[in-house]
Simulated assay, not measured.
Amino acid sequence: MRIMLLFLCLACSALISAQEYEREHFLKTDTTWTKEYFDLPTGFAQDMTVRGIEEAIFPPGWGKVEHAEFWSYIFVWAVNTTEPLTEHDLEMNLELYFDGLMDVKQKDSTVNKLPSTALLVPTESATGNTVYTGKIRVFDRFRTQKMMTLNLKAEQQFCPAQEKSIIVFRFSPATFDKAVWKKLNAIPLREAICDLN
């Protein structure tokens, strides 16, 4: 009986590892970037209306307040949908995501915590994908315990045959002319992204 239980535990562990490995393919980065994976909606933002998975990557300076990479990172949502997500869908789900991440509903009289607000503006794209520039105002519960504005760039690629959209979000409190954006923009999606996962 113990051998069977041990085998079952090992099999489950291998299956989980295989699932995680399959997810490690949206973004091409070097080993200095930290990666995290979530199912969507995430455990911290169950009100999100999108269903799928997320890959998030963080440069080494992400968590250091005085660093040029502070709060600069990228995540990709691969969501199940029969049509591209609208600006409203993206804005609403970003707000729900960050409100959950920052635990905005948890009352705390010592900090000025406000709900997240997102704004995406479509811009021209030579790729045929939908490209956005925007901002999201969020509460930073992890480092500063203050409200902050993250500038963002997003690109949505709709995959009709697979009935999914791949949305890449790049965030930083730095303005778009700062060097960190060169680093964020240099991280590419893997080729033939619609055929993955």
Rank of each mutant, 00 (worst) to 15 (best):
Q19D: 08
L15H: 08
V79N: 00
K107I: 14
T86C: 05
F7Y: 03
M48E: 03
C9I: 15
L196H: 11
K28V: 10
P41W: 12
D47M: 04
A179Q: 12
L184I: 05
Q46N: 10
K182R: 06
V76D: 00
T31K: 13
A186R: 08
R143A: 11
E91W: 05
L120Y: 00
S72F: 06
Q157L: 06
M92W: 14
P122M: 02
G63V: 03
T32Y: 02
S172H: 11
V65E: 14
P41D: 09
N112A: 14
M48A: 02
I193K: 00
S72T: 10
F98Y: 11
F169G: 01
T149M: 10
T149H: 07
M4I: 12
E36W: 03
S17C: 14
F38L: 09
V65K: 15
G43H: 09
G52F: 00
W181H: 06
A56N: 12
I193Q: 02
M102I: 09
I167F: 05
L96Q: 09
F98I: 00
A174G: 07
P59L: 12
L27A: 13
D140Q: 04
T82M: 08
I74A: 01
Y97A: 04
P122H: 03
F44I: 03
T32F: 01
G61R: 06
T144L: 10
A56T: 12
E163N: 15
L196D: 00
K35D: 00
E83G: 12
K105I: 10
L196S: 06
L150E: 02
P41T: 14
H25G: 11
Y132M: 01
K35T: 05
F142D: 14
L189E: 02
Q145I: 01
I53N: 07
M1W: 14
F26A: 15
W77Y: 08
L96Y: 06
A78R: 10
S17K: 15
T29A: 05
S72H: 06
L5G: 00
F58A: 05
T123S: 07
F58W: 06
L119W: 09
C159T: 14
E24C: 09
N197L: 10
S109C: 02
K135L: 09
F98A: 00
L101M: 15
T31H: 14
E55C: 07
V168F: 01
W181L: 06
C9Y: 13
I136P: 01
P41M: 08
A11T: 14
T144E: 07
V65R: 15
K182Y: 08
M4R: 13
D108V: 04
F158S: 07
P84W: 04
T82D: 15
Y37G: 01
V138T: 13
F158V: 09
D39Q: 10
P173Q: 05
Q19I: 04
L94Q: 02
T110L: 13
N151T: 04
A192E: 13
P122F: 01
R2T: 08
T133D: 05
R190P: 00
L5E: 03
S72G: 13
Y73P: 10
G128K: 10
T81G: 12
K135Q: 13
G52S: 07
S165I: 01
E83A: 15
M148D: 04
L114G: 03
P160F: 04
H88F: 06
P122I: 03
A192G: 08
